[in-house]
């Protein structure tokens, strides 16, 4: 028994066993909050993050490993990589999502079919309640498809 092995196994167990399992719970909490009109985004995004904890760590490692360990510029390059990724990868994808949202709102989603209206919210919550396993599998599918990065 040594400390490094224990710490490695603890991290691996928590990141690869417990968090993917808890992802389902985060989605359940998200659906429950959504059905009551509460803030549900945190739990939903946490569910996605819990499914891709290894990918998040690999991403941070990628940011930090762009220079040698003894290169003093590694700190700056790490921050530069994070800013570069946020501005040139994340924001364009987020922009696509905003375009989709704009089209949906233009089509009436927002006032004629308002998702915050009780009847629509409860119908959607019921659909999610009946199909949460499918939604979770869909999230896992999206994450598995995304291991190759954005193309």
């Amino acid at each position: 028994m040594d400390f490094l092995t224990g710490l490695t196994n603890l991290t691996s167990w928590f990141g690869n066993v417990m968090l993917p399992t808890l992802a389902g719970l985060f989605f359940v909490v998200s659906v429950l909050r959504f059905s009551r009109g509460g803030s549900h985004q945190y739990s939903m995004y946490a569910g996605f993050a819990a499914l891709m904890v290894s990918g998040l760590l690999r991403g941070i490692e990628r940011f930090t490993m762009q220079r040698a360990w003894n290169d003093p510029d590694a700190i700056w390059i790490t921050l530069l990589g994070l800013v570069n990724w946020s501005a040139n990868v994340f924001l364009p994808l987020y922009g696509v999502l905003q375009v989709v949202m704009a089209i949906m709102h233009f089509g009436g989603m927002g006032f004629r079919i308002y998702p915050g209206a009780p009847w629509a919210r409860h119908i959607l919550a019921a659909m999610l309640c009946f199909g949460l396993s499918g939604a979770l599998r869909l999230a896992e599918f999206f994450i598995a498809q995304g291991t190759g990065g954005v193309s």
Binding site: L4, L10, F26, Y45, A49, L57
Partner: peptide
Amino acid sequence: RIMPIAAGLAVCGAIVLFAFN
């Protein structure tokens, strides 16, 4: 050796904190 593993643990902790807002 220890710090890179602690980084993984920190990411897990960040997700848990985020989940509970």
